[in-house]
Computed example of a mutant assay.
Amino acid sequence: MIKEEVGNTNGRHGLWRDNVRTISTYLGIAAGSFIFAFGLNYFIIANGLAEGGFTGIALIIHYLAGWPVGTVLFLLNLPLFFIGWKMWGKTFVLKTILGVAAVSVALDLTQGFGLKTHDLLLAALYGGVLSGVGLGLVLRFGATTGGVDIIARWINEKSGISMGKIYFLFDLFVLSMVAFLFGLEKALYTLVAVGVFSQVIDRIIEGFDEAKAVIIISQAVPQISQAIIKELDRGATILKGQGAYTGQDKDVLYVVVSRYQLLRLKNIVQEADPRAFVIVNDVREVLGEGFRRPG
């Protein structure tokens, strides 16, 4: 009887956690959609700039015909829903519809909010940052935004052309259209916005937990590893290596530290072995003990 009650309690707790996670996901997608829409309307559209991908196509149609951007974006994606359903199944399509619908509704609801400025560079920078943060949140919470994502994935599976090349060619096409229709200056400022937008999305998806991965080859690996544990409160891994020229066995120490701890780590190595060979690599995101937890 006791075991049954415990099992029921664990089941209720698990169901509660699942419900909280689901609600958080929908709230995150909604928040991201509105941040994206606000950045696009307030800075990009208000100053006649554009974007890459299907959003750029929707903006061009909006400028030429006056149609609502969100509605146009959703209509452009409709044929791709059927391709996604046929190629990758119901789950993929439902996530895509969710992402596209949330962004489209947010764009139309925030239409008319804008800051007209003579400094198009500031508009491109702030518009790129805000829209990048918003779309990054939408993607991070599990929704997809269709458009070029579906086209690139489909072409990649059919022909083997890399998705990166397809994204580049599509954005180049959109920017060429902007330059032809609205002038080279608008296209160049749009390019700035697209660049900032892409970088911010990468940061949101991959995380801000920048760290340094350090490889240390030294005769004093045991002393260095102990100092890292005591002084930096970090773990480390000792690997076994062999010198290619000498054929001698060597200890190789692998450790990940925050960028603020890198200088202290260098000092530790220098004090223990001034002749140590040290390699430092950038790490975008670290999950685990001492860093951000997974999930």
Rank of each mutant, 00 (worst) to 15 (best):
L188H: 08
I161E: 09
T110F: 14
V100H: 11
F180H: 08
I151E: 00
G146R: 01
I215M: 12
G128D: 00
G235A: 09
L172T: 15
I201V: 11
Q199R: 14
V148Q: 01
L184Q: 02
V221Y: 05
I229P: 02
D149K: 04
I150L: 10
G164R: 04
M177I: 14
I205N: 09
M163P: 03
I201C: 00
T91I: 12
G142F: 02
F182R: 02
V148E: 02
F92V: 11
A213C: 06
V200A: 00
F141Q: 06
L188M: 09
A227K: 14
M163W: 04
T190E: 11
A101I: 13
R153Y: 00
F141G: 06
K212I: 06
R153E: 06
Q111C: 09
V100R: 09
I161G: 06
L122C: 00
I161N: 05
F113Q: 13
L98W: 15
E185G: 03
G132L: 09
K165T: 08
A124K: 02
L107I: 10
E157V: 07
R153Q: 10
G183V: 03
Q223H: 11
G136C: 09
V178T: 14
V192C: 12
L172W: 07
L120D: 01
E206L: 15
A101C: 14
G160L: 14
I166T: 05
L172R: 06
L232Q: 11
T96P: 03
I229N: 14
T190H: 11
A123N: 01
L94N: 07
D149C: 04
I205E: 13
K186W: 05
L109A: 15
I215D: 03
F208N: 04
K230M: 10
D119T: 09
F168E: 05
F197G: 03
A152P: 01
V105N: 05
A211V: 10
G112P: 10
A143K: 07
V196W: 08
M163C: 08
S198G: 06
V214S: 00
G195R: 10
E231Y: 12
A187T: 07
G127L: 07
A102L: 15
S176N: 12
A101W: 10
V221N: 05
G147H: 03
V196L: 09
V129T: 00
Y126D: 01
K186F: 07
E210G: 02
N156L: 00
A227E: 13
K90A: 10
F168H: 06
V192Y: 12
I228P: 11
L181W: 07
L115H: 14
A102Y: 11
L184A: 12
V214T: 00
L137D: 07
A227W: 03
K212M: 06
G142W: 04
P222I: 05
G183T: 01
F170E: 12
T144P: 03
Q219W: 08
D108T: 11
A187S: 13
L120H: 06
L121H: 05
V103F: 10
L98S: 15
V93H: 05
D233K: 15
G160V: 13
I155G: 03
L139T: 07
D149F: 00
G164A: 12
L121G: 04
I205S: 02
K90H: 13
A213L: 08
L121S: 02
A193H: 12
E206K: 13
V133T: 09
F170H: 13
F182C: 00
L125H: 00
